[in-house]
Amino acid sequence: MYYKTTYTSPVGLITLACDGDNLVGVWNEGQKYHGANISEEMTVKDDIPVLEVTKKWLDRYFAGKNPAISELSLAPIGGEFRQIVWDILCQIPYGGLITYGDIAKMVAAKMNKTTMSSQAVGGAVGHNPISIIIPCHRVVGTNGSLTGYAGGISTKVKLLELEGVDMSRLFVPTRGTAL
Rank of each mutant, 00 (worst) to 15 (best):
T155V: 11
I130M: 14
I133R: 12
S70Q: 13
H127K: 15
L162P: 03
R169D: 15
P173H: 13
I14H: 01
P129M: 03
E40G: 15
T115N: 06
V11Q: 04
M116R: 11
C90A: 15
E71S: 09
V11S: 03
V140K: 02
A150Q: 11
G164H: 10
G64R: 05
N66R: 11
G96Q: 05
T99I: 15
Y3K: 04
T174N: 14
A63L: 04
T114I: 08
K110V: 03
P67V: 06
E29R: 12
L159R: 02
I88N: 00
I130T: 12
S118V: 02
T155R: 01
S168W: 10
T6N: 12
K113L: 14
D166L: 02
G96Y: 10
E52V: 04
I14W: 00
R82K: 06
M116G: 03
R175W: 11
L89F: 13
G30C: 01
G144L: 02
Y94D: 01
G123T: 06
L162C: 06
V172A: 05
T8Y: 13
N128S: 08
V26E: 00
V165K: 04
K110F: 02
E52C: 05
K105W: 06
V11F: 01
Y149S: 04
I84M: 09
G35T: 05
W86E: 11
H34F: 15
A150M: 14
W57A: 03
G122P: 02
G79C: 14
V140G: 02
V11H: 04
P129S: 03
T174I: 15
I92C: 08
I88S: 00
D102H: 13
V172Y: 05
K56D: 05
G101L: 12
S118N: 12
A109M: 03
L13H: 05
G79I: 12
F171V: 03
L72R: 13
P67R: 05
P76H: 13
F81K: 11
A178K: 04
K56T: 09
Q31Y: 09
T114M: 08
G95M: 06
I84L: 05
G176K: 11
P173E: 13
G96I: 02
T115D: 08
V85Q: 09
R60E: 04
E80S: 10
G148C: 08
K110I: 10
G176I: 12
G35Q: 04
I69N: 03
T8W: 09
I130R: 11
